[in-house]
């Protein structure tokens, strides 16, 4: 999958978690803009992991603050999987 395809897929997956319908840009942050709490993060990460058959460890999650960084990380991880 190229980056655009990964982006499209993640947009789909994030939909049910984006309760306020916040517009997704690369710089949209999970904590402040999307207001994800730790339980939401866990469920959302699990969805992505299952979809792309990858692991995003908590250590890697700590480096991901915004949407663009997530797409980059998943793109890289699934290419290596």
């Amino acid at each position: 999958m190229d980056r655009a395809e990964v982006d499209t897929k993640i947009r789909e997956l994030i939909e049910p978690f984006n309760k306020k319908g916040v517009e997704l840009k690369d710089e949209t942050t999970f904590q402040n803009d999307l207001e994800f709490d730790s339980l939401t993060v866990m469920d959302f990460v699990a969805e992505i992991e299952d979809e792309f058959d990858i692991i995003i460890s908590m250590n890697q999650q700590a480096e991901i603050e915004n949407y663009g960084q997530l797409v980059d990380a998943v793109h890289k991880l699934q290419a290596g999987a």
Binding site: M42, D43, A46, I55, S57, M58, N59, Q60
Partner: peptide
Amino acid sequence: GQAEVVPFK
């Protein structure tokens, strides 16, 4: 320990 941490539900 700085291991990779992977939580599950």
